[in-house]
Every structure is written in structure tokens, then in C-alpha cells.
Design a protein around this nucleic acid. Sequence first.
DNA 1: TTTAGCACTCCCGAGTTGGGAGTGCTATGT
DNA 2: ACATAGCACTCCCAACTCGGGAGTGCTAAA
Lengths: 346, 346
Amino acid sequence: MTNLTERQKTLLLLLIKDYIETAQPVGSKRLAEHYHLNFSTATIRNEMSALTELGYLRQPHTSAGRVPTEEGYRYFVSEMMNKAELPESVQHTISHQFHQSRPEVEQWMTLAASILATQSQGVSVVTAPHTEQAKFKHLELISTQGRQVLMVLVMMGGDVRQQILTLTEPVTQERLSQTATRLNTLLAGKTPQAISSLTTRPDPLDQDILILILQDLQNRIKRANEIYTDGLTNVLREPEFSESGEARKTLKIFEERSTLQDLLQKTTTNSNIGGLQVLIGGEGEWEELRQCSMVIARYGVAGMATGMVGVLGPMRMSYARTIPTVRYVAGVLSDLVNDTIAEENR
Amino acid sequence: MTNLTERQKTLLLLLIKDYIETAQPVGSKRLAEHYHLNFSTATIRNEMSALTELGYLRQPHTSAGRVPTEEGYRYFVSEMMNKAELPESVQHTISHQFHQSRPEVEQWMTLAASILATQSQGVSVVTAPHTEQAKFKHLELISTQGRQVLMVLVMMGGDVRQQILTLTEPVTQERLSQTATRLNTLLAGKTPQAISSLTTRPDPLDQDILILILQDLQNRIKRANEIYTDGLTNVLREPEFSESGEARKTLKIFEERSTLQDLLQKTTTNSNIGGLQVLIGGEGEWEELRQCSMVIARYGVAGMATGMVGVLGPMRMSYARTIPTVRYVAGVLSDLVNDTIAEENR
DNA sequence: TTTAGCACTCCCGAGTTGGGAGTGCTATGT
DNA sequence: ACATAGCACTCCCAACTCGGGAGTGCTAAA
């Protein structure tokens, strides 16, 4: 694939860089003058012609400058993927912000989303660390008043959820505690699947609570798919979205969420922790994203708890900025997840 | 103020109605033909001229139709305010959706936001019911593993929050329970203010936990200000936001939130439960909303727990649709809050 | 007081046009 | 064989023009 001469490569990368900055088709003259190249515009024209032939460039009109194709962006991204580094000062700022924040998953998510959005000037997308095989850890039932009972369900991985139940008849705290103790020994360390095969219990209260636990585990899965987002308006800044029709199509993705979930699902299943993926132009699969690119990374601890961070922007987004930022934030989040798990297993 | 003749009033209302539908300046001819008026275009022109003089209408250019001014919209709204009714079928659908939903505040909020957005085709804004003077109800401390402790804090009004603490040294469940019992009797029924004057405790664990409770109460206030939103892209559908610059300014409000909070705060303090307020063109106070209108209502139980629902749209939003919808949703939410409080005091 | 008639204003969309940026090709130089 | 200068050609785009049309205000008559 790398059947490009050194000069072609230089020109291609420069042209894309220029186009990303200016959003204007780039001509031979501009390229020559702006980057002090030691060959003439005619030579550049010849090379550009070749690059067009090879599918890396495209002409919007017969007599306009060149614009990168999706293939061109792919080449550009693969070239810079391993070079791009985040300035140390920015790294410090980011990691500082995280260590300042309160040690709650929700805080981390919104913080990550906010940082990614401002750094990349795109729309950020973050999902909470999700334990695919969350194991039961602890259940607590607390009578609060009348028929109302507070159920607290703790899963390994630090995931906690509470819920207020209203029982059909009042139950003493003692009986609640007994039920909790029985269920705790019964369910300890079990996965949701294992739990769902235990639906019949002798004690009717045990039975009721067990069903509620299962329901809650269902919701937990839904909740794990909750997507944090920031910087939506950044997309409106880009000239390619100036007709509001295009912008609407893109922003709609973030309101409906289903496409987004689909996308994150498909993308992450075949990606490793720390591995970065760049989707360009929806990769033919997501019509809504034909104008966009997305930089996505998986973070967390494989098999224990993983989530996603990503940035969506126009196809001519600043990859040089976005790629290292996403990578770095994913790294920080991985560390945080690691720490949490380590703390738990002390 | 109602110094308008019956005919002027009719014409004004018709014109605004027409403009809301078409987004085009309305001329005398269109008005006459479209609504089978039994007076001529010349008469209409005279009346329109008078209405312009009175400040209800405006001409975009010397020879264009008329467009309502903010004053015009205000008149329109005050005229229809008490007339507008939501069709019963829609009422049923909405109330059905709420009673289908799980009895959790978060569910209600997202549901309300979604319903308002789809019904009104605007951007919905909903805040959770917030108990200004939440009283302490119950504290629970549960040792989970190692130095990690789960703190569950229940306030009157059904507000529950849990948090995982990591103590500096391991503590037995027994000691935790003792602390919880002591603090429960100490704090029962107290307001945050009362609690914050109790900062010194003899037992160091009691002391630590008390501080954490106060921190959590702080966060609870912040959280109560959390704003649920839906239908952001609806705004992009409107022609007045077709240049993305305008749209960006408006959507930005929903990302930054501070303006929105300011607005909700100022608006709700002087409004009663069930009372509807319509802000037109930012009322001179919110520059960002100069193009927009907002329909806002307060819901809940005064003095116990109240929140806000509202819809933001272009100034030519469909008030006839939005006003009764906001009113109805506020009513349903009030009922739900009422039920919750009643359940609690059984 | 309403209405018909009329001159006037001014927006807006459809053509028209010229300049400019960029291209590909060819011929010439290295 | 490759790079470059020169040149004719293409085609976009912004500016300009222009006529129709919608709407107005005024006046005079009913």
C-alpha cells in the first residue's frame, strides 16, 4: 500500500494538514508558497495528479484545488497515529483535574467528556466502566418508614445502586435483615446469569426481593450503557455543518443514542484496551456519519471493567490533537479503574 | 391596556397565528383571503397601521407584511393563556406514560423532558423536585470490604444518595453501626443548616462521618439543580436558526447551564405552583434568548418539594400547543410528588 | 367609516459577467 | 528521465443588474 514516493507522501500529508486548517481546497500554488518547497508548482501538480489517480485526493470541481478523500485521511491518520504526542503540560493539566475530582464514577465521566470536548473541539462521547460479568457482592435492606424499604445493591467493581421499594405490607427490620443475610450468602460472588436461574425461594419475602434484584441488574446494564457527552455545539462551529440540515442529522445521533450505542458496541468488541480506532466517514456503515470522523479508545481492565472514550468531529478534524488526547484520557481512566479494583481487593 | 377594538384584536390574533404557522411576514391581502374576512384589504391596512403604531406589529422592510413584536406576542399569549386546553386523548397518553414508568425521580424527569420536547417541538427543560429545606431522615453505614464503607443517606422527600468512602483505617461493622445509631438520633429531622452547626463530636469516627454528611448535603444541592433536557435538535428545524451562528448561541445555553440555572432561579422564585410564566425574547434580561420564548411552570408541593418544567422555542413557537402541555405535565408531576410525600407520611 | 384605485417602495430571485484560482498539457532545460 | 516554465482552458463565485411582485400609504369616492 505504501507505494508512494517520499515526495508524494510529503505532499499528501502537507496538503491534508493544510486542508484541515483552512477547510479550503488546496492548490499547487498555495502548497508551494506556504511550505517553501524546493520544487515547482508544476511538479506538485503532476504529483497531485498521481495522488488523485491513486484515490487519495479529489477535486471538487475541474478547476479547484484538491481535497483529501476518505482514503487520504486514512493514510494521514495511520502515518501520524504513533507520532502524535500530547504536550507534557497538557498531560499534567488533565491528570491534575482527575486527581482533584471526587472519586466517583459519575464525576470521572463528566470530567472526561468535558476535557475531551474542549481539547479536541469536537463532540466527546464517554461510557462508564462496565463490568460485563459484574458479580454480586453485597445486599442491604433497610426499613425506613411504613412499607418503604431501601434496597442497596453493591456489585464487585464498586458499582452501587440504591432503590426505594414500597412493599405491599409492612415488614420488620429484623425480618428484612434475615432476608438480606440469607440472600447475601446465597448470591455471594454470583453473576447475573447465575442469579437468574435461582428464581424460586421458600420464603416469600426472599422471593420478592430476589426478583427485584434481578430487575435492578437489568437496569444496571441499561445504565452502564449510559453515554456521557459534551461539546455538542462545537459541531456547529464547523463550516461543513453550516447548513443546519447537516448539523441536525449529526446532532440527532446524540439525542437518539441508539445509533451511537450500536456504533460503540460494534467498534469496541474488536478492539483492545489502549488500542485506538479511527472511524472515517462512518466507514460505509453509518450513513449519518458520512461527513464525520470518530476517534475511539477502550479503557479499563480487560475482563473486569471497561468503558469507552471517543471524540466525534468533522472528517477534517484535528487528528493531531484529538488522537493523543483520547489516548491519554483513556490511559488516565484505565489507571483510575485499576486503582479502584486494587483498593477493593485489598 | 386593552385599548384595542374588537376588530383590531381579531386581526392581531389572526396575524400572529398565521405568522407562527408560516414564519413569513403577513400582508393585508393574505389575511383577507385566508380567513374570509368581511372587510377589505384597505381596512386591514389601516388597522395594521394602527397596531404598528401601538407597538404590537412591526415591518421588516418598508414594503413587506407585518410581523409581531414582543409586545404583540405578549398580548397573544395573555389572550390564549386561559383558553388553551390539551385534547383529552393527549392528556390520557401523557398520564398513562407516567403511570407506566418506574417510580423513580430520575425516570420521571427524563420522561417529562421527552414528552414536552415531542409535544411542543421545542427544547424541554426539567429540574428534579428539590426540597429547599430537606430534613435528615436516616443514615446507614455498611462495611463492604477492607477500608471501604458504604454510606447511605436518606432525606425526607424520598431523596436518597449513597457513596463509597475509603477510611484511613479499617473499622468494624459494629463500630460503624454504633456511629450510625448515634448520628441518627442526633440528626433526626434536622435541616442542613442545623446540622452544620454541630461540627464537633467526641468520637472521631462520628466526627469524620458528620463532615462527610455535610459534604454530601452540599452535593445534593448541586445535584438538585441538575437539569434534564430533550429535543435540542428541534431548534435547528426552525428557520430563524438556519444560520448556525444563531443556533449555536442558543444551544450553548444548554451546554453551559449557568445561564439556564440563573433563569430558572429568577423565574421560579416569584411564581406559584401551577402558575405558568411565559418569557418572551429573554425579557430584556437574557441576551442569549433574544430570539426565543420560554414557557415555564413550577410543580410540586410548596414548602416541601418543588421543581420546574419548561419549554424553550423560537419566539414564534406554537403557544397554543406548548402552554397547555407544560401546564398539564406540571400537574402530573405535582400529583406524583404529592403521592410520594403522602406515602412517606403514612 | 369603509373601500377601490393608484403610485410608490423595496425585496428577492434569475440572469449576466469578469476576474481569479487552478488545472493539464506541451515544450524546453538539466 | 525528470523538473520546470509557459500557456490556454475550465469553471467557480461574487458582484452587479434588472424586472416582477407583494405590500404599503394615500386619496377620493361611496
